[in-house]
Simulated assay, not measured.
Amino acid sequence: MSTTSSETLSLDLRGDVAHLTAALMDIESVSGIETAIADAVEAALRALPHLSVLRDGDAIVARTSLGRAQRVVLAGHLDTVPLPTTPGSRGTVPSSWDGETLYGRGATDMKGGVAVQLALAAALTEPNADVTYVFYDHEEVEASLSGLGRLVDHHPELLTDASFAILLEPTNGAVEGGCNGTMRFKVTTTGRAAHSARAWMGENAIHKAAPILTRLAAHEPATIHVDGLDYRESLNAVRIHGGVAGNVIPDHCEVEVNYRFAPSRSIEEADAYVRELLEGFDVERTDAAAGARPGLDVPAAASFVAAVGARALPKYGWTDVARFSALGIPAVNFGPGDALLAHSDNEHVEAAAIRECLAALTRWLA
């Protein structure tokens, strides 16, 4: 059975990291109900005398203070997307095993990464760099609720003294540098309503949106080289709204457009790019988040890539590495599991992948 907020589960940080992953998954932690898992993580960290621990809401920061020449951040989010409703789904809570494959919500996104953080926090009493472990809430919902964003606002001094950060999002064991930026737009057309039997009396706003879709369909997305990595962009209509009834000519239509842009572009440059393509239409930007350059030329990043023996790849999606980049801290994604399985009804991770991730980070930090 899954653990509720009235119970605090005792986590074994020194046992098999794959079984620690299962224990974390068994605490239901959909965005907004992370208190139970935050309680368990906090209790486990406070039992480690070599760490100082701070909690802000359902976000927790644990730090070593050994006076090392550099400090690195290991970060991961505690929450998951909602549980699946499909009968027979294996991406639910509690977790289940099929041989050495672990099934359940959060298996890849990202309880395996969180388990690796906790195992490292317990094992590395004398790491070769000071380490800041960050566990945060509300990653899977709107950015304004982000626990990491709250930590940046409330306790920046606990983060900004780092020279490098690793977000343990699933990467299948590769190092994914930086991330693309993302922004959304609402492109609006207007017409005149009329009875569909007398369509000539109106102006069809949905038909007026056809050139928007034509331009987007004809658009050739760029691949942009940034700091040694090639970032593929994409610009797409992702939703369309229009019409009020089956016998009414629509007088309003909105096309929602999502642009994923290379981290070399600023938000202003990306905005101007979309507006130029859609010139002549009413374009309103509704959301934007800058990307993050990979920063693989930073010595800590280069030593990390060499130590884990993984090749560096670009991150096409947006992740919280961008928050670290905004603080001037180069950051990469590196964690167990296949990101393509995240949020799926078949979400799962191989036990070996979690163990290998832990071994790689131990080699680098021990």
Rank of each mutant, 00 (worst) to 15 (best):
V305W: 01
A310S: 03
Y273V: 13
N236D: 13
L235R: 08
P299G: 15
S325D: 15
A237F: 05
A326P: 04
G242T: 10
D251P: 06
L235K: 09
G280F: 05
L229G: 08
R285Q: 13
A262K: 05
T286K: 04
S234T: 14
R265W: 02
D251I: 06
R275N: 07
E279Q: 04
V248E: 01
G309Q: 03
V238Y: 05
T286L: 09
R239A: 15
W318P: 15
P263Q: 05
V298L: 07
V305N: 06
P250R: 01
S234K: 00
G309R: 05
E284H: 14
V283R: 00
A322V: 12
R260H: 10
A310V: 00
F281P: 03
G328V: 13
I329L: 08
N258S: 14
A262W: 04
V283I: 15
V238S: 08
A289H: 12
L277V: 01
G228Q: 09
D287W: 12
G291M: 02
K315A: 15
A290N: 07
Y316N: 10
N236V: 15
A270L: 02
V257A: 07
R232G: 10
V244K: 04
H252K: 08
R260K: 12
S266F: 00
A289N: 08
A310D: 06
